[in-house]
Design a protein around this nucleic acid. Structure first.
Lengths: 187, 187
DNA sequence: TGGCTCATGTAAGCCGTTACATGATTTT
DNA sequence: AAAATCATGTAACGGCTTACATGAGCCA
């Protein structure tokens, strides 16, 4: 009973209340996008597969207006979700951070180029903080996890912004513009 | 002249000095693994491709002992690397954080299960901090980026550990063990 | 001699992104 | 009337992981 990433997301999202594929996408873009993205190319086929496996059930909910299908968890689906949530195996964690990689190789660059790189990195996370701030959920005593997750996102990216500021300062105060020639190696 | 993720990594790694595939893997596992991983299944074929594209050049360097190939950048390779480094397009950034996703859906769990989840998350990042601490590079005035990147990793994961501690405290101090029945929805 | 590290690969398969397609309905 | 949003998909492709394979030297 293995669930891929998209399946986990779907089951979880539906456990928050019956939802259509489209609504899941919206909620993802407001809430989990930055630590668990999904694309329609993955979402809709996976909804079909989960229905065939009997973990979710879809019903037409087009009340007069647009055609659409709302899904809800079956008992098997609730079990599968729970099983995953309490699964003791190692929690997956991966990051792909192009700015960090570039920075690691920044020895090839001159001082201004490095600074520009760090500034771009800072802007990126400032934007992430802004975007996240814009979708603040209201506090709900019975469901604190949305809010705490939102706070986590804000805090994490704010920390990165601060790191960028400190690094910019350190790189700026460092001696004269010693632009090391290109191609020079240092093993 | 597009470079995929692995190609960027390879060019950068080789710019730090001529290296074999195996050495690149080692350096990755010590330095970039957490924000830019690579597997041999991707690495070795990509080395061949980059050589065919004329961006790197490999020579046998088996001095008596084992067979191995050391690669160095060609002028075209240096250009390609530089082009990527100063490229102004949006810097890629993605995270896949299973613990964060589980936490978002933690309404399904009872209080102790949530606490266990957060603790597992904390342990994960404590381990990351330890692992990173274990591979501290020495400071090098002419190449500060390795060190600064290392520090970044330590700082980031430490921040996450602290967030977990705060969250554990908040969840613990919160009222009596109100284990909400399963299956209950809150839309 | 058995196991570990060095060193380089291949094959299968999943997973996910991108881009495209369609059509209805609401808004400007 | 045009444009944006709602809503659901499909096809192609790339990238990456996993697992396996091989063989040579090193160390106990």
């Amino acid at each position: 009973m293995e669930l891929n990433g998209t399946a986990r997301l779907i089951l979880g999202m539906i456990s928050l209340g019956r939802r259509s594929g489209y609504e899941i996408k919206q909620l993802v873009s407001r809430a989990t996008r930055h630590f668990w993205p999904v694309s329609s190319g993955q979402l809709y086929p996976e909804l079909k597969r989960l229905e065939q496996r009997g973990l979710i059930r879809g019903e037409e909910s087009s009340q007069g207006d647009r055609a659409r299908v709302d899904y809800s968890l079956t008992p098997d689906g609730e079990d599968a979700l729970r099983q995953w949530l309490v699964d003791q195996r190692e929690l997956g964690f991966q990051m792909r951070d192009e700015a960090a990689l570039k920075f690691y190789f920044a020895g090839v660059l001159d001082r201004n180029e490095v600074l520009e790189l760090v500034r771009a990195r800072r802007r990126r996370h400032e934007r992430l903080v802004e975007e996240t701030s814009a979708v603040a959920p209201e506090w709900d005593d019975s469901a604190p996890f949305r809010y705490l997750t939102w706070e986590y996102g804000i805090g994490l990216h704010t920390w990165i912004v601060e790191w960028c500021k400190r690094t910019e300062a350190r790189l700026s105060e460092r001696t004269p513009p010693q632009s090391r020639e290109r191609g020079k190696r240092n093993d």
